[in-house]
Computed example of a mutant assay.
Amino acid sequence: MTVVVRAAHDFEAVRTMIGPKRPDASVCFCLSHRLPAKQNRSLVGPARGDYVRGLCESEIAPGVLAFDGDEVVGWAGVAPRSETSFARSTKIPHLDDLPVWSVWCLRVRPGHRGKGITASLLDGAVDFARSHGAPVLEGYPSDNGDDRIDLTMAFVGSRAMFEKAGFSYAGATSSLSGGFPRVIMRHDLH
């Protein structure tokens, strides 16, 4: 398997990875951390997809996609922290005044898990943020040790996963995911 990661300008591939099964559903599309809560709640049904289509058509894509040949197999949400709910978070602190970028959602399609796609997504997220001038990329994974993360909460990743991708522990948070504490992991992009 040869995995290629590229900017998420392909809306249909993004929809495959993070869109709801029903087009009229008012869930996911990876918007809960991208938008203020009130705006996120106001986007219902097809308006959510329309909003994400606009993000895909913008100069800076809403994240990165992993492909195995022509098949999309993974997604990572990546953006400047200032453009996400992490900018206002009281549970995930700002460590300094650097204009950091965040990677907050990692998703691999069923049937493709356990093949190193998440590692490719994190490498792609690093390259994507660096190509847009980010000095640092942060992630906020679960610090679950050897304990298993419930699949519905695994989208934040694990500390070990981020460490394998070259990120370093940078600080604690007061946030939990799946019952585990979340930590701040950083990758210097200079």
Rank of each mutant, 00 (worst) to 15 (best):
G111F: 10
W75D: 09
R48A: 01
W101S: 07
P93F: 01
P46T: 15
L43A: 07
K38S: 03
L106I: 14
V108M: 07
G54K: 09
S42H: 12
D96H: 03
C105P: 06
L98A: 11
F67D: 01
G63A: 07
G54Q: 10
E71D: 08
P62A: 01
E83D: 15
A47G: 08
V103E: 05
V52K: 05
G63M: 02
L31G: 04
A47S: 15
L35W: 03
G49C: 03
P80G: 08
C105F: 00
R88E: 14
L35I: 07
C28A: 09
V103Y: 00
V103I: 12
K38H: 12
A66H: 04
G63R: 01
P46Y: 11
R53L: 10
L98K: 12
S89V: 05
H94P: 04
R109L: 14
L31D: 00
G74L: 11
C28P: 08
H112W: 15
G111E: 04
R53P: 01
R107A: 09
I92M: 07
L35G: 01
V27L: 01
P36Q: 11
I60Q: 15
D50H: 13
R48T: 00
N40C: 07
C30M: 05
H33G: 06
A47E: 10
L95C: 02
D68F: 11
V27A: 00
P110H: 13
E57P: 04
W101A: 02
W104N: 10
E71S: 11
T84M: 02
C56D: 05
E59P: 03
H94L: 04
A79C: 13
S89D: 05
W101K: 08
R109G: 09
V108N: 06
G77M: 03
V72L: 08
E83T: 15
D96S: 10
F86T: 11
V44T: 11
D97I: 10
W101P: 03
S85A: 13
L55V: 04
V64D: 06
V64L: 11
S32I: 00
P46C: 09
P62V: 12
P36G: 07
V103A: 15
E57W: 07
L55K: 05
V44P: 00
L106T: 03
A76R: 05
L98Q: 14
S32Y: 07
G77C: 07
V52E: 07
P99Y: 09
E83W: 06
G69P: 03
L95I: 14
A76S: 11
V73H: 10
D70V: 15
P93G: 00
P110A: 15
V64S: 05
F86H: 05
A66V: 08
W101L: 02
V108Q: 04
K38V: 10
S42G: 12
C30F: 07
R109S: 12
D50E: 14
F86I: 11
P110W: 12
W101H: 04
S58Q: 15
E57C: 14
C56E: 08
V73A: 00
